[in-house]
Design a protein around this nucleic acid. Structure first.
Lengths: 147, 147
DNA sequence: TATTGTTATACTCTATAACTATA
DNA sequence: TATAGTTATAGAGTATAACAATA
């Protein structure tokens, strides 16, 4: 009982909202070219440049076998390319293809996306709240395990 | 191109963060008694009282067959009870059991939860940003389809 | 006929364990 | 041996389609 403030309530409410929102977001993407999981990996490659499967798994906070599957599906779609590592035969380098770049750019411009429409409908103040919360949420995502 | 502000970027960033955070939250709960999906359903019952499976599915924004499975798993755990509807033989009434109530209360008090610890580590201002964003996120979750 | 809920089935996402190849 | 990645397998969560019971 070290915290008199309602951080537990905040955590509980946030986690329920996050799980429900992710449910809606995933569903809403069912007609899209790539899933949210795939898009997330593409975005990391776009942001951080070519990297190994292990590095991508770490960045996305999934285990290597999970990333193997995501990479395979994206390679099937022609959105990434795998090249041998220049010095270490065990590793590989995953690179965004031209097609993959296009998808990322289109996503950024996808005004018709479900979430964009909903955000457009918010007040300026509400949008500001979201914007201010983003880096905080990112901090939570990237928090180390420590347990 | 009606919005000169960067709402698309906001939507894209938010959806990636939400998917990654929900990934971590789900994983972090693997040792817990109930999953996030189950907890979410229990919370709705706690908040809104007994309701039909269809009502619960609508509240959770999943399809009825999905809710059938969640309900079955929670009934197996003894956390909910199903009773016949008083006037409509097709429907049923799902009620939180004593055990289910306990779980909800414990969750609220679970200071050791992963997310609570992370939130404790934030600054007061960061927590305020999260708190302010919660109702906005809830609004997004509960936005109607309109498409 | 229309509605409510369940069953049957399938797909996505993720994990752990076991294996292969290279360091 | 240790590390990087893949394959094999399994489980959770969700969906659609088909069905049964009731209105």
């Amino acid at each position: 009982m070290t915290s008199p403030s309602d951080n537990d309530g905040l955590a509980g409410a946030l986690s329920l909202i996050v799980v429900r929102l992710s449910r809606r977001l995933r569903l809403q993407r069912n007609n899209e070219l790539v899933s949210l999981t795939q898009l997330s990996a593409l975005s990391t490659l776009h942001l951080e440049g070519p990297m190994t499967p292990g590095g991508l798994a770490a960045a996305e906070r999934v285990k290597p076998p999970s990333m193997t599957r995501v990479i395979a599906s994206l390679a099937d779609l022609g959105m990434i390319e795998r090249a041998p590592h220049p010095t270490d035969g065990r590793q590989a380098i995953v690179t965004l293809s031209e097609e993959g770049e296009k998808v990322i750019v289109n996503e950024h411009a996808a005004r018709r996306a479900w979430l964009s429409d909903r955000i457009d409908a918010l007040s300026a103040h509400e949008r500001e709240c979201l914007r201010a919360a983003l880096p905080v949420l990112a901090k939570l995502v990237n928090a180390p395990e420590t347990r």
